[in-house]
Design a protein around this nucleic acid. Structure first.
Length: 816
RNA sequence: GCGGGCGUGGCGGAACGGCAGACGCGCCGGGUUUAGGUCCCGGUCCCGAGAGGGGUGUGGGUUCGACUCCCACCGCCCGCACCA
């Protein structure tokens, strides 16, 4: 009698063996067809949590299954190791973030290993490694050369208490600093940007070809926010030298313009403002400047206080009428031209503002019957619009735009919501921006042979949150690469999204010391065949990585034809507890180690696969531990079956085993392809139940062995340890289930010789009859009409129509 | 407000226009066991003794046939939100 299933011992044994054997290390010249499977590299926050377990269980399943199916699978792992939590810990303790981070990485790696998820650790990258920093900086300099990185003034979040700039994420919902509680204000500072807007159209258009979840694509489309419209000038009354340029998506409504609005920050404001209005305008502008972003964007507060008349008038070029110019905080300097023509009849914000300021409202699109009291933004015939009258929206827009272009007054334009990527962070624990500032030559790139620029170790963290780089003389003092005169280093570091925008490329060639990666190696593996991660990265990370890939491709750093990094994306559901996301900050983590130490990693993996569709959120409830126990129970059943501990009865039970086995292969393979892991697990459970009955009925020998071996092969990607152990026990010390070829279903055996034909009358099931699989329609009808139950239900009536769908269903349609 | 998604037993879920509720959790019963646990077997949508009838958020439609497709409504979740 073999001993029982000891998950602890087995998992330890196989994890050690896989490590020794270098399992899942893959070389770039591997002759098998390549497959790149990647899980989003984690921020090292300590031990793995259930979100990691879920992510890496899916990834490992694919890695192992594709390997069995004959692919050379690239399965790398690394760490997104720069970031704020390590710096905050440093500020608290005074210790350097590096040992803190390295410790966290060691913890996370250890728990990933206990999950049994396999990676080619030779390829590991860490954002904070000097070699990785070198190439991140090198890429920054290439983008700078190409004009895709630039420096500009930008309004940033400023905390007066901390005397530092904050990232948007550090500003709480009430507009205060998450550290000091001070009210955050806006400040103009010189910052570095990436020109992602240069790729707006490509980023939008190329989404169509990606095999990504529709909702992620929609989010990206909305984020890019392309809108087509027209720009034109409104001449300022009494100022022949001055015109106000506006952008609109509805040039067809121009005859309804009853005023114009300019953003308070617009440079034209001082010029426009008349002397008698200057005091009021200045007061308004000053107030808006001190307002927080949150205040300004909230729709609260009386509209009367949110705008001011400038005293100026502009002329509507469509009808020559003068209209007043206002400032209002609902018009943003950062979008379009920072000025609009206001058409209250067809825009609700303009309507509300017009009501508050008692401005006229002229409808230029005929609203439906009974429409009143608000703007009408739908389609309808143009009215009050001279030569546009009667035209519907699309045609009127086109005609109005043509008119503007013919008269040389304006042009068709496209605007984007997407802004350039502000990458400067006033932080220590990030990749330094490789720039020095010279009094004579300004911002000068650090020469390539001086990379990487590394932050010093002997730094003092201040409780104010300011970067210690700003006070480190040894770091600050430099020489201008152009003239050799004393110069000062840039103390800002890069947004950590820069690091994660190219790590998947580095994985293909992590040993390269000449360039970030050899384009030929990248071409071999990329695009990533399967990328897996959380929905929270739907916009920023995935957009930035796409931008980097396109830009690096255009610069010749990445392969020319590599236009997208991730051809297939899967976003897993969140783990929730009590209705909120399970997370460290909420303190509702359920530690995977508790399960590694008890039921084992295989049972926990199986739970994550079985609990529901991978894309759905998982609710961690009181029932969850019982379900996990059920998964462990199932594995113990497989153990007993495979080690011959199920007592055999007598009789003939092995009759259909071979056929059932082939059907299982077809079903599980299909489920794997469709990401339907919960049903793949169910199929294996069902099959195991069947085998128990077969054994009890006397099944033995070749067909049973084939059934069990096939089950183990199919489960090997899901529960690698127990299947490896059982395979070794059944086939000898050198036998490896994960080296087996992926089982193939024999179509002849999957097909059945008989089927259960369902007989319906008017769509209701009346009988089930066993028929040959190749039964014809006429035969089906004959068999159906012969059935006792059908005759009883028909009660003498004759079907008016017979719908036969061989071989599974026949529907008899009777009147009445 | 705009966009996307989802509503199926006590619970997680299954069903690619054709047998609603696979598989599992829980619960009920039986067997093994000194006992408990483990393990094995059976049952478990509702009404009905049964034959049968009803049932996938609500209402309508398409179809021989709808959980599935279409329309309207109700409810929940997610994303964006003064973007002109």
């Amino acid at each position: 009698m073999a001993e029982g299933y000891d998950a602890q011992a087995i998992e330890r044994k196989w994890q050690a063996r896989w490590r020794e054997e270098g399992a899942y290390e893959v070389d770039n010249d591997d002759p098998r067809p390549p497959f790149y499977c990647l899980c989003m590299y984690p921020y090292p926050s300590g031990s793995a949590h259930q979100g990691h377990v879920r992510n890496y269980t899916f990834g490992d399943l694919i890695v192992r299954q594709r390997t069995m199916a004959g692919h050379a699978v690239l399965s790398p792992m690394g760490f997104d190791s720069f970031g704020l939590p390590a710096e905050n810990a440093a500020i608290k303790t005074g210790a350097h973030p590096r040992p803190f981070t390295d410790g966290r990485i060691a913890q996370l790696k250890a728990s990933i290993e206990r999950l049994g998820a396999m990676y080619d650790w030779r390829r590991e990258v860490r954002s904070h490694d000097p070699e990785y920093i070198r190439w991140t900086q090198w890429i920054f300099l290439r983008l700078l050369e190409a004009g895709l990185a630039y420096r500009d003034r930008a309004a940033v979040n400023w905390c007066p208490g901390c005397q530092t700039v904050l990232a948007n994420e550090q500003v709480l919902a009430d507009g205060t600093c998450d550290r000091s509680g001070d009210v955050v204000t806006k400040r103009d500072l010189e910052q570095w940007f990436f020109r992602i807007t240069a790729y707006a159209d490509q980023l939008l258009d190329d989404l169509d070809e990606l095999d990504w979840p529709e909702r992620v694509k929609v989010m990206q489309r909305n984020w890019i926010g392309r809108s087509e419209g027209a720009e034109f000038d409104l001449p300022v009354e009494g100022r022949p030298d001055l015109a106000l340029r506006v952008f609109t998506t509805r040039p067809d409504t121009s005859f309804g313009m009853t005023y114009a609005v300019v953003a308070p920050e617009h440079p034209i404001v001082p010029e426009l403002t008349t002397d008698e209005r200057r005091e009021a305008v200045d007061a308004f502008v000053a107030r808006v400047r001190t307002e927080t972003e949150v205040e300004r964007q909230s729709a609260e507060g009386p509209l009367e206080k949110r705008g001011v008349f400038t005293g100026a008038h502009v002329r509507n070029p469509f009808n020559g009428e003068p209209v007043p110019v206002y400032l209002a905080d609902y018009v943003l300097m950062g979008y379009g031209t920072g000025a609009i023509m206001a058409v209250p009849g067809e825009d609700q914000r303009d309507w509300d503002f017009a009501k508050a300021y008692d401005l006229p409202i002229i409808r230029t699109v005929q609203p439906p019957e009974g429409w009143e009291g608000e703007a009408y933004t739908g389609d309808g015939p143009a009215v009050n619009s001279q030569w546009l009258d009667g035209l519907h929206k699309d045609e009127a827009v086109a005609r109005a735009t043509e008119w503007l272009e013919e008269k040389g007054l304006g042009r068709r334009t496209v605007n984007y919501r997407l802004r350039d990527w502000l990458l400067s962070r006033q932080r220590f624990w990030g990749c330094p921006i490789p720039i020095v500032y010279c009094g004579e030559h300004g911002a000068v790139p650090v020469p390539e042979d001086q990379l990487p620029v590394l932050a010093p170790d002997d730094v003092e963290f201040r409780p104010t949150g300011e970067s210690p780089l700003k006070f480190h003389e040894g770091f600050l003092a430099s020489a201008c690469p152009t003239c050799g005169q004393p110069a000062t280093r840039e103390t800002d570091t890069m947004d950590t999204f820069v690091d994660s925008s190219w790590y998947f490329l580095r994985f293909t060639d992590p040993w390269n010391r000449e360039v970030p990666f050899d384009p030929a190696m990248a071409a071999r593996w990329l695009p990533v065949d399967q990328y897996i991660g959380g929905i929270e990265h739907a916009i920023l990370h995935l957009m930035y990585a796409r931008f980097f890939t396109k830009a690096l491709s255009d610069l010749g750093v990445a392969p020319k034809d590599l236009r997208e990094p991730f051809s297939r994306l899967f976003t897993q559901g969140m783990i929730r507890m009590g209705g909120t996301k399970m997370s460290k900050s909420k303190g509702n983590l359920v530690d995977p180690a508790d399960y590694f130490d008890t039921v084992g990693a295989d049972a926990l993996r199986l739970f994550h696969l079985f609990v529901g569709p991978p894309a759905d959120d998982v609710d961690w409830t009181e029932q969850t531990d019982e379900v996990i126990d059920g998964c462990a129970r199932f594995l113990a059943r497989v153990w007993r079956l495979s080690t011959g501990e199920v007592p055999a009865g007598t009789g003939d039970g092995g009759r259909d085993l071979r056929q059932a086995t082939h059907r299982l292969v077809a079903r599980v393979s299909d489920d794997y392809d469709r990401w339907s892991y919960n049903t793949a697990v169910a199929a294996c459970m069902e099959f195991t139940n069947l085998l128990y009955k077969a054994v009890a009925a006397g099944a033995a020998g070749e067909d049973l062995d084939f059934a069990i071996d096939t089950l183990l092969s199919l489960m090997a990607p899901m529960t690698p340890h127990i299947t490896a152990e059982l395979w070794e026990r059944r086939h000898g010390d050198d036998a490896r289930v994960h080296a087996q070829p992926w089982p193939q279903a024999d179509p002849a055996l999957v097909a059945t010789t008989t089927e259960t034909m369902v007989v319906q009358i008017n769509g209701k099931v009346r009988d089930r009859i066993e028929v040959p699989a190749d039964v014809g329609e006429a035969e089906m009808e004959r068999l159906a009409l012969e059935s006792e139950r059908v005759r009883a239900a028909l009660d003498g009536r004759t079907p008016a129509r017979v719908v036969a769908r061989p071989p599974k269903l026949v529907n008899l349609v009777v009147e009445g």
